[in-house]
Nucleic acid binder design. Structure first.
Length: 260
DNA sequence: ATGACCTGTTTAACAGGA
């Protein structure tokens, strides 16, 4: 089963780009972030026409996450359990049947956290703490589990073009790294790093200042695998070529193949 | 060149992103 994650930066602006990608890459499951659409306004029919079942957790203007699946969902959970007071649409989870059993998949849009001297940074750390608590619950199910999304976390120096330029940034601060490691240390595998140890495996390039032609990127889109998913991992690829397409998102998809 | 963008919104400048 091919499972992908992609921050599309607006479903309306990216309609043709996402359709092209779905037709070419043929993911069985696609986790999208920053759809920037209310649930009711989401163009689900466009993707249903391509053979997908569509689950959306949207809001007006900003944020918003979705999961597409070729197979009907067994279950959909809207919002991060245990964080019901959160007004921002940043989490959706679904259980999807595969050939050999189910897989549980979440589409996550973790807060950016900048500027760090505002309430945005504690909000990010608090959100990560809620995610950790829920991840711990899910790991106890001992299922193939994929926590996919835009984490807004640069894990290591090899994941950023100019580490010194990111010191103090919410994506790269020690507190951010500590919170991310606390989640990883529950027992997750970073799918990309399970198959590729090279540096510069970027998933985001700013639209500004020629970041893409200069390859000034960062790796912030991740697929975290439970042990039962990691044991079934067959491949993981960053779909870098999509950043060169017409009307690109500033992020590119990451796609895994799981034997489920 | 210390330059350079993109999206959504109460369609004219903002806010937000990373």
């Amino acid at each position: 089963m091919k499972i992908a994650t992609w921050n599309i930066n607006g479903v309306k602006a990216r309609l043709e780009t996402v359709k092209t990608w779905l037709k070419e890459a043929q993911p069985d499951v696609a986790c999208l972030q920053e759809v920037k659409s209310m649930t009711e306004a989401f163009p689900a029919d466009v993707f249903e026409d391509l053979g997908y079942n569509v689950a959306v957790h949207g809001q007006k203007s900003f944020n918003g996450v979705a999961i597409f699946s070729k197979t009907p969902f067994d279950e959909v959970i809207i919002g991060l359990p245990g964080n019901e007071a959160d007004e921002q649409a940043r989490y959706i989870e679904a259980v999807i049947p595969g050939d050999k059993g189910i897989v549980r998949v979440a589409s996550i849009y973790l807060p950016n956290g900048n500027p760090v001297d505002t309430e945005k940074y504690p909000y990010k750390l608090e959100w990560m703490s809620h995610l950790k608590a829920h991840a711990e619950t899910l790991l106890a199910y001992e299922e193939p589990l994929v926590l996919a999304g835009d984490y807004n976390v640069i894990p290591e120096a090899r994941d950023v073009h100019a580490p010194s330029a990111w010191e103090g940034d919410a994506l790269y601060r020690p507190e951010t790294h500590a919170a991310f490691r606390a989640i990883m240390n529950l027992g997750f595998t970073d799918a990309l790093r399970a198959v590729n140890a090279e540096d510069a495996q970027y998933t985001f390039w700013d639209y500004q200042a020629g970041a893409w032609p200069k390859n000034n990127g960062i790796r912030i889109d991740h697929m975290l695998l439970s042990p039962q998913a990691a044991d079934r991992l067959e491949s993981c690829r960053v779909m870098r070529e999509t950043r060169g397409w017409e009307k690109p998102s500033d992020h590119v998809p990451v796609m895994i193949d799981l034997a489920v």
